[in-house]
């Protein structure tokens, strides 16, 4: 979500101009399959695992990982969605309203929460998500899964499961969709 907000909202808004394909649709599916296996391996199965997708980019990724986990583990992990608008540290400077719903219907106390997002950039969205998750109960552990880690962290946060490490410069933009992963720039900023 961090990536989308930064790129599509005024005064930073603009049009995404793709430069290169980083992962094809098939590569993306392979990466998600591997990450799902890693989630199951790390946690000795998925009995306590709850996937929480960050709105909006992380939600389809979380659903796709849940589908893979259902296939390999034979049980469907619960999937929640989280919008962190009320936890951001730039409220008042550049307010962003929640654009999508938060839906975590279970008490997270004792669960292993796997936060899922499309792109990990500064880490501020993840920081906000960690604060938000605390309000749903005391999770046993929180892990982080991202399709692309593009660097430029501003906070001491690292992912547990990564689809692709992608060195970028700050001005670039990474777009994750069903068609794969593209890198490019945003014109008209």
């Amino acid at each position: 979500m961090a990536e989308r907000e930064r790129s599509h909202t005024r005064p930073l808004g603009g049009v995404f101009i793709p430069r290169a394909q980083v992962l094809s649709a098939a590569d993306l599916q392979r990466a998600l399959t591997r990450m799902s296996h890693e989630v199951a391996e790390r946690n000795g199965g998925i009995e306590e695992v709850v996937l929480v997708g960050l709105q909006t980019g992380g939600v389809p990724i979380a659903k796709r990982m849940a589908a893979v986990l259902t296939e390999i583990e034979g049980a469907e992990p619960p999937v929640g969605t989280l919008d962190v608008a009320f936890y951001r540290d730039d409220i008042g400077l550049r307010p962003v309203l929640p654009e999508a719903t938060t839906d975590i219907s279970m008490d997270l106390t004792g669960a292993i929460v796997v936060l899922v997002d499309d792109v990990l950039f500064t880490g501020r969205t993840v920081r906000a998500a960690l604060n938000a998750l605390g309000d749903y109960g005391r999770a046993k552990a929180i892990q982080l899964a991202v399709v692309v880690d593009r660097g430029h962290r501003e906070l001491p946060i690292r992912p547990d499961f990564v689809g692709k490490n992608l060195p970028t410069n700050r001005e670039e933009m990474v777009d994750v969709s069903d068609d794969g992963v593209m890198i490019g720039t945003v014109e008209g900023r």
Partner: peptide, 15 residues
């Protein structure tokens, strides 16, 4: 969105 906050275990946000 705030009505959802009120249904949480801890119904408070730092906004």
């Amino acid at each position: 969105a705030f009505a959802e906050v009120e249904r949480r275990v801890i119904p408070k946000v730092p906004a």
